[in-house]
């Protein structure tokens, strides 16, 4: 579905540039639709799949990787007491999403603040939205790191744990 849309839009790539004339139309369209549906804050890099279709930019701390430790006992926000925590909602909704529900477990990169008030749809199409800081190291490498720890450090790890069970009081 995504590929189909991408291919269908490909001939119009020339017009679908960030800061291009067409973008204004997209911005208005996004503000109206996503604004009404998700209270979109126009960060320009939509991650609704990873957040139970709850816009994380409504979190007063702009958290994109899960709730802070300040969530109140009633599930409301530490900063805005009358608002339900964005991440309490995100977690509940993600549990009801059969296909993308577990994307909430992904570690997301830092927000690109330059994309504020640009079109997330165009950014997605041009690939700007998916572009991480050049030095960012993704989940894949972290998984490789773990594989390494398991293979090269298995003996040490086992020794460590044995040691721990003996010595810990």
């Amino acid at each position: 579905m995504y590929d189909a849309t991408h291919n269908a839009l490909a001939p119009f790539q020339r017009w679908l540039k960030p800061r291009g004339s067409v973008e204004k139309t997209f911005i208005v369209a996004e503000e109206i639709t996503k604004g009404a549906l998700f209270n979109c804050q126009m960060c320009g890099q939509c991650v609704l799949h990873s957040t139970g279709m709850t816009c994380p930019m409504n979190c007063p701390k702009n958290l994109r990787n899960g709730p802070c430790g300040g969530v109140r006992a009633n599930g409301h926000c530490e900063i805005i007491p009358e608002m339900r925590c964005v991440w309490v909602q995100a977690w509940e909704r993600s549990r009801a999403m059969p296909e993308y529900g577990n994307e909430i477990l992904n570690v997301l990169p830092p927000v690109n603040r330059r994309l504020q008030n640009t079109s997330a749809w165009i950014n997605e199409f041009t690939g700007i939205a998916q572009k991480n800081p050049a030095g960012w190291i993704g989940v894949n490498e972290i998984l490789m790191r773990d594989a390494n720890v398991i293979s090269s450090g298995a003996r040490n790890l086992a020794a460590d744990n044995a040691d721990f069970s003996l010595r810990s009081k």
Partner: peptide
């Protein structure tokens, strides 16, 4: 998730210290 080129070329990261 996108992997940046500089990260992909960086081999130092792949030799982590084992836990001990």
């Amino acid at each position: 998730m996108q992997i940046s080129r500089s990260a992909r070329n960086d081999t130092t990261f792949f030799v982590p210290p084992p836990s001990s």
